[in-house]
């Protein structure tokens, strides 16, 4: 490490005593100190994160615990209790817990989208990482990235004429005499749109894992009598799990808070939690309740990921691959 080199250099360099050091020497010494270097290199990013990330998140927390204007009105937990209506729980009227139901649905959709994204990503990245000819690899990976050159909004809009009642899929179905399928303005539309947008985010980290996977391990497993499925289950899956988890966690977080896709494709049954947060800030002018809803989302999503990560590590452990982390 360079810090060790610096320490060694400092030991060799004659140390000026505070009495004899001129101002210039003291300034130079200070400029050479670890504290100063640390502040210079870390400072800007710390400042950036504080101003644009920590402060807004802290403000969200602050808003969520005041009746109205922060510090100008009383402290309260009414916004959180509005989310979890205790009287509805005690009277066993669980259907009255509409915000909880909505959050449950959003988390459910996020889980489905994450799993589907991984299921789609595995064969693609397996081919890319293990079998694709070297000279085509870059081009194939580019194909995954190219959609990002177009706006997320436009790509989501593009699904409307594909999924709608008069759209490509349903026109094709009715032409051959099949009944049309309701694909747009319900949760199916949300899920299709979200999987489409987020699949690249599972492909890229999983591809990195697949590329690093030693193909002789798969050959060894096959030589020792493992079927293709067993080889995948015992070798490929555990060894690529870090990539899958990295991509999966990212997709899960983004999907649980999705706003644009469910607004455009989800209709009523595909409505998601972030849309209700938006309503609180926009039409309902209740920033405090909106902030409380956002805080709850952050806590629930982080909690879900924490549980999933623990579960993920256990999966590795049960395969005898834990600890080493490979």
């Amino acid at each position: 490490m360079s810090s060790q080199d610096d320490v060694a250099a400092d030991a060799v360099r004659p140390q000026p005593t505070p009495e004899t050091g001129t101002l210039r020497e003291r300034v130079l010494e200070w400029a050479d100190s670890e504290v100063f270097k640390g502040a210079i290199s870390l400072g800007p990013i710390l400042l950036l994160l504080t101003v644009f990330y920590a402060v807004p998140v802290a403000l969200l927390l602050v808003y969520s615990i005041f009746v109205e204007d922060p510090f100008a009105s009383g402290l309260t937990f009414e916004h959180f209790s509005r989310f979890v209506d205790v009287s509805a729980i005690t009277s066993l009227q669980f259907s009255e817990l509409s915000y909880v139901r909505l959050l449950g649905r959003s988390i459910g959709i996020a889980v489905i989208v994450t799993v589907l994204s991984l299921v789609i990503s595995y064969p693609i990245t397996y081919y890319l990482g293990q079998h694709a000819p070297e000279r085509w690899k870059i081009a194939l990976v580019m194909l995954v990235i190219i959609p990002f050159w177009t706006s997320y909004l436009i790509r989501t809009y593009a699904w409307i004429p594909i999924l709608s009642n008069n759209g490509f899929i349903n026109s094709a179905l009715t032409t051959v005499g099949l009944p049309s399928l309701p694909l747009l303005n319900n949760y199916v539309g949300s899920i299709i749109g979200l999987v489409y947008v987020f699949v690249p985010f599972t492909i890229l980290p999983l591809y990195a894992s697949m590329e690093g996977l030693d193909s002789s391990l798969i050959e060894a497993a096959r030589d020792l009598g493992a079927s293709r499925w067993e080889a995948f289950r015992e070798v490929v899956f555990p060894l690529t799990l870090p990539g899958a988890l990295a991509g999966g966690v990212f997709v899960f977080i983004k999907t649980a808070a999705a706003y644009v896709t469910p607004s455009l494709l989800g209709g009523t049954s595909g409505r998601m939690y972030a849309q209700v947060i938006e309503t609180q800030f926009g039409t309902a002018f209740n920033w405090n309740f909106g902030a409380a809803l956002a805080v709850i989302l952050v806590v629930v999503v982080l909690g879900t990921i924490w549980i999933a990560m623990r579960w993920g590590i256990d999966v590795k452990g049960s395969r005898g691959l834990g600890g080493g982390g490979l």
Binding site: R101, L102, R105, T279, F285
Partner: peptide, 17 residues
Amino acid sequence: TDDQIQTYDEIWTDVTV
């Protein structure tokens, strides 16, 4: 009023979820 907006919003959220 704000109270009405909140009540209406709760009804509407409950209907659409």
